[in-house]
């Protein structure tokens, strides 16, 4: 149950912020600092949350921060827990989750390519989808896709 999970997290970590969103059942959103993410993920994995659903990133350009979101799911409790953390936009670095889940490599490669976040301890951050891309990472908010498409694809070479 959702209350049981909230009690479990509050009992072991005192300074996290827990939100139960309205109109949504079976979801718990927690916000932590970036150094605590691996500890909380390991604690949840040992308590039944063994499935890593996704890792993604949101670009809050007005605040100057990236927000990383980790989604975990438990097959016994049937609840999704989202762990959210904010990192600095000018020098984005975070610790890798590879020692806990081998499949986090796919998501971390994609975030490195699309946003430019560097994951310490991950040896395989090679390009995932794009080939020979030399500009800024395309999913950042200051890359203008319409202007790039108009210049490159709408006219012939001189």
């Amino acid at each position: 149950m959702v209350e049981g999970v909230v009690e479990l997290i509050k009992g072991n970590f005192s300074d996290v912020e827990i939100v139960i969103p309205e109109h949504q059942e079976k979801r718990v959103h927690i916000s932590v600092e970036k150094e605590k993410v691996k500890e909380i993920a390991k604690f949840l994995k040992d308590n039944g949350f063994r499935h890593l659903s996704f890792i993604t990133c949101v670009d809050w350009i007005d605040e100057g921060k990236f927000e990383l979101v980790y989604g975990l799911y438990s097959y016994e409790e049937k609840i999704v827990v989202l762990i959210k953390t904010k990192i600095d936009r000018d020098n984005p670095k975070q610790e890798t989750l590879l020692p806990l889940w081998d499949q986090a490599q796919t998501y971390e490669r994609e975030i490195h390519e699309m946003f430019g976040v560097y994951f310490d301890g991950n040896p395989g951050l090679t390009p995932f989808i794009l080939e020979d891309w030399e500009g800024i990472p395309p999913m950042r908010k200051d890359f203008d896709s319409r202007k790039y498409s108009q210049i490159t694809y709408d006219s012939e070479a001189k």
């Binding site: 993604t56 490599q105 796919t106």
Partner: peptide, 15 residues
């Protein structure tokens, strides 16, 4: 503001 799409084949096709 942001939409992330978790396809079902993200894990099946790569890892």
């Amino acid at each position: 503001y942001r939409v992330y799409i978790r396809g079902a084949s993200m894990t099946h096709g790569i890892h």
